[in-house]
Amino acid sequence: MSAPGEKRAAAEGQYVTFGLGAEVFATPVGLVREILTYQTPSRIPNSPAYLLGLTDVRGQGVPTADLRIRLGMAPVDPTLNTRILVLDIALEDRMLSLGLVADRVFEVTTFAADQIEPAPDFGIKWRSDYISGVVRRDDGFVVLIDLPRLLSTTGEAATLADMAAVDQAA
């Protein structure tokens, strides 16, 4: 168990890179079950603004979140490039299947340990503990995002899992 405020470093390995606006993010390929062409999720009343609803993934209702909204970015309308990354995220007491909407998905790529820089210290009070590292490229940076931490530290994972359970019981 890590101490509060201690950041987990990103590990060397394969990552799926995806874009939100002009920013490029990456998540470990092991979390990604599949990548789907965007389909409008079925809305869930009284859900948080970032939760778009449930997406049917092979007969299972998967809570689908707009990562742009969750990260404080402005929402945009889906395009032909919009994708849903279906993730399986291990939480303390269960496995959470979750869809995350990305503006586009680029590639699966390998980052070596010497390419991954620690998450920067921004010097201001801003929640950046979900950034596990950055990779410098010729055209900018790739932010390595720790999705389990992004969701689990705020209790949102429990809400998403509960919504999926309600759909499966129906």
Rank of each mutant, 00 (worst) to 15 (best):
F25Y: 09
I89F: 04
T153C: 10
L67Y: 05
R149A: 12
D77E: 13
A158T: 09
V143I: 15
I145C: 15
F25A: 01
L20S: 03
T27R: 03
G99T: 00
N81E: 13
A65I: 15
M163T: 11
V24K: 03
V166Q: 13
G21Q: 06
V62M: 08
Y130V: 00
L54A: 04
Y50K: 04
E92L: 01
I69P: 05
D146V: 10
A112R: 13
L31Y: 08
T154K: 15
A119T: 11
T79Y: 02
I44C: 10
P148G: 13
D139C: 05
G155L: 05
S152E: 11
V105S: 02
R149L: 11
Q39R: 15
L87C: 11
S132R: 11
I131S: 00
Y15W: 05
Q14K: 11
L160F: 10
I35V: 09
T153G: 14
L31D: 03
V57S: 12
R70H: 14
P41H: 11
A9F: 13
G155W: 10
L80S: 15
D121M: 10
E107P: 00
D129P: 00
A157Q: 01
V134R: 04
Q115C: 09
T110E: 15
P4R: 04
E23M: 14
L87P: 11
Y130F: 12
L52R: 06
G99L: 01
R33T: 09
R136I: 14
V108R: 02
L54N: 04
F18R: 03
A65P: 09
M73H: 12
L54E: 07
A22N: 11
G140T: 00
L160I: 02
L151N: 03
A9D: 08
V76D: 10
T79E: 14
A26K: 00
L150H: 05
F111P: 01
R149F: 11
D114P: 12
A170N: 02
A3G: 12
P78N: 09
G133Y: 05
R149C: 09
Q39V: 13
G133M: 08
V24E: 03
P120D: 03
R136E: 13
D103T: 01
M163I: 11
V29S: 15
S2T: 13
A157N: 02
L87G: 08
L51F: 14
T17N: 04
L31F: 08
Q14M: 13
A164C: 09
P41L: 05
S152K: 11
V101K: 03
T55F: 03
F106E: 00
S2L: 15
P148Q: 12
G133K: 02
E117V: 12
K7A: 14
I44S: 13
G30D: 13
P148F: 11
T153M: 14
V143H: 05
D56K: 07
P4W: 07
V101G: 02
I69K: 13
P45G: 09
Q115Y: 04
F141I: 12
L87A: 06
V62Q: 06
S132A: 12
A10F: 07
R83D: 04
L151K: 04
N46I: 15
E92Q: 00
I44Y: 14
V108L: 06
V86N: 07
P63Q: 03
P75D: 10
